Computed example of a mutant assay.
Amino acid sequence: MHGFGILNALPEDSGQLGHAHGGRMLGAVMPVWYIGSLVLVAVWAIAGWHHHGTGLVVTAGALLILSVIMSLLLLVPINNRNKTWTPENRPEDWKEQINRWNRFHYVRVAVIIAAFALLIDALT
């Protein structure tokens, strides 16, 4: 079970409040993670341009860019709404919105895992 499943299993309003808090915390950290990862992959691709595996590094970079685009277009809008919700002001469809965020998140994680698998392959 992942962290979001644990939050969803909490009683009453605790799960939604946990999602909101996590959205605020991770919303501040994720830009650093994305920018740092993209910069490192770009440096790796440029430094090893004529070496074996550069195509894998470039493809991994493209997948990381895709994950950023997915985040900005699909996940951030939901997260921006969610992080302001309280039990008193959340919309009626808040559970559906969190479930939609979770589904997009799973796809984004799969894209990121594929990117890092390509980077590992490029090392070998």
Score class of each variant (00 low, 15 high):
R103D: 00
A42Y: 06
N80E: 15
R90D: 00
G55T: 06
F104H: 03
V68Y: 13
A45C: 04
N89Y: 09
M30I: 14
N89S: 08
D121Y: 00
E96S: 15
H19A: 00
F116A: 11
L119T: 02
E92G: 14
T84H: 06
G23D: 13
L63G: 08
T54W: 05
A115T: 02
A114G: 04
V43S: 05
S14C: 04
G27F: 03
L40D: 05
G18I: 00
Q16I: 01
N89G: 11
R103Q: 06
R108M: 03
N99E: 14
P91C: 10
R108P: 08
E96Y: 07
I78E: 10
R103C: 04
H52A: 14
A47F: 12
G27M: 03
P31N: 09
L64S: 05
Y34C: 03
L72T: 11
V39W: 11
L17D: 15
V32T: 08
N82K: 13
F104M: 05
V29F: 15
G36Q: 04
P91V: 05
R108G: 09
H51I: 01
Q97L: 10
S71Y: 15
H2T: 15
H51M: 13
R100N: 01
P11F: 06
I113T: 12
W49R: 15
Q16S: 04
P11R: 04
R24W: 02
L72I: 06
I35S: 13
I65F: 15
V58F: 01
L40C: 12
M25H: 05
A122G: 12
L56Q: 12
V43A: 12
D121A: 02
A114H: 00
G15F: 05
V39S: 09
A110M: 07
H19L: 02
E96N: 14
M70L: 10
I6N: 10
G36D: 10
N82R: 09
L118V: 08
H50R: 15
S37C: 11
N82H: 11
E96L: 15
W85F: 04
F116K: 02
N102G: 07
K95Y: 05
M25E: 01
G55Q: 13
V29P: 07
G27P: 08
L118R: 01
V107G: 10
T54E: 14
V68M: 15
W94L: 02
Q97R: 13
G61I: 07
A60F: 04
H50P: 06
